[in-house]
Design a protein around this nucleic acid. Structure first.
Length: 363
DNA sequence: CGCTTTTGACCGGCGC
DNA sequence: GCGCCGGTCAAAAGCG
């Protein structure tokens, strides 16, 4: 038994933010609303459209209730892009934010926009903003490769404790923190924890979550060379909500999709009514000094209507998250993005976490 | 047999 | 410096 884990669960009251704070006060009025509507808000994170990769893994999209009668890029289109983050910040938001919702723009209750002041870095900010790190340019080489690298460097004293080193050779460099891939998370109402998004994942860990009876699972894309990871945890507040956080970009097309968009395994039984979904998406650096993931929320079954493959290999950061997120500018209120304790900690910049706990209790 | 999941241990970052 | 905590490793077990 891992004492630590036990402790972890009990020693709560740490820097736990509530997702509710990050939750975007958005709600859709009908079941068939176009998810795209959500992103119709101002947000320069778009890099322009560029029908690029169209592996479009429908899997999860479908599960979310997103149906399209065209080979549209999937929600994770961008993730599939082999594009990596450039050492330099993405191009400034040009005036090409025309990506108006092609159609069906249902009602969208636009909530308060996030205040630039409360932005948060960390997770997202780790988007290889360090030119000095060659590794940073490759998709989450974080694990194995980097690890070997480290191992090589430590060549001198390694023999001392091979016992341990062999077990955990972190890819971290001495002077720099480990660089994390940008992440984005979303909440989905589902009975199943592991949502099928078209990719193959292998679980490599599970941890108890503070303040939550539900554990957090860690998955890694099984594709060779693809270091995309994702974490899945169930909201303690609302057990019916599953919070999934993706980290990194797939360097390959969806295995499911490649065999035909019908390849995905529909756990639809659980998603059939994909009641609600929320997304936490990071924002481009050039939009904010302290990047912060955004949580996109939607209630009722969304019907995404993405028509343009926006995966742009040149947009660097933009390609880090779902096309639809790139297309639609969206600026949720940071104060409405807190909801879940666990993942939020990752999504929420340490800065914020430092704060003596925001007065989330009573506004 | 190969792949995935489980699970205890370990590591590094961070707060105190 | 110490302890907590998130994240990851990897051996063992499970599964098809």
């Amino acid at each position: 038994m891992d004492k630590r884990e036990v402790k972890t669960e009990n020693s709560t009251a740490n820097s736990t933010l509530n997702i509710e704070e990050l939750m975007i006060p958005i709600s859709f009025s009908s079941n068939s609303f176009a998810l795209s509507s959500i992103f119709d808000m101002p947000c320069e994170s778009i890099g322009g459209g560029g029908g690029g990769d169209k592996w479009g893994s429908l899997g999860f999209m479908d599960l979310l209730g997103i149906h399209q009668d065209f080979a549209a890029p999937s929600l994770f289109d961008s993730f599939q892009s082999p594009v990596v983050f450039p050492p330099q910040p993405p191009p400034p938001p040009s005036s090409q934010q025309q990506q108006q919702p092609q159609q069906s723009q249902q009602k969208v209750q636009q909530g308060a926009l996030p205040s630039p002041a409360s932005r948060i870095p960390e997770s997202i900010s780790e988007v290889s903003n360090n030119p000095a790190t060659p590794n940073s340019s490759s998709i989450s080489s974080s694990s194995n490769e980097a690890r070997n690298d480290e191992n090589t460097k430590a060549g001198d004293e390694e023999e001392k404790d091979q016992d341990k080193t062999k077990k955990q050779l972190k890819p971290k460099k001495k002077n720099q923190k480990r660089q994390r891939e940008p992440r984005f998370a979303f909440m989905t109402k589902s009975e199943v924890d592991h949502l099928d998004d078209g990719y193959r994942w292998r679980k490599y860990g599970q941890k108890a979550v503070k303040n939550s009876p539900y554990p957090r699972s860690y998955y890694r894309c099984t594709s060779a060379g693809c270091g995309v990871k994702k974490r899945v945890e169930r909201s303690s507040e609302d057990p019916t909500i599953v919070v999934t956080t993706y980290e990194g970009q797939h360097t390959h097309p969806s295995p499911m999709t490649t065999r035909g968009s019908l390849g995905f395994v529909p756990d639809s039984s659980a998603f059939g009514a994909a009641a609600s979904t929320s997304f936490v998406v990071p924002q481009p650096q050039y939009l904010q000094q302290q990047q912060q993931p955004y949580l996109y929320t939607s209630s009722s079954t969304p019907s995404l209507n993405i028509n343009s493959a926006t995966t742009n290999a040149n947009t660097g950061f933009n390609s880090s998250f779902p096309t639809f997120l790139q297309e639609r500018r969206f600026r949720p209120s940071p104060a409405s993005l807190l909801r879940d304790n666990g993942l939020l900690q990752d999504l929420v910049p340490s800065q914020m976490r430092k704060e003596p706990k925001m007065e989330l209790n009573n506004g």
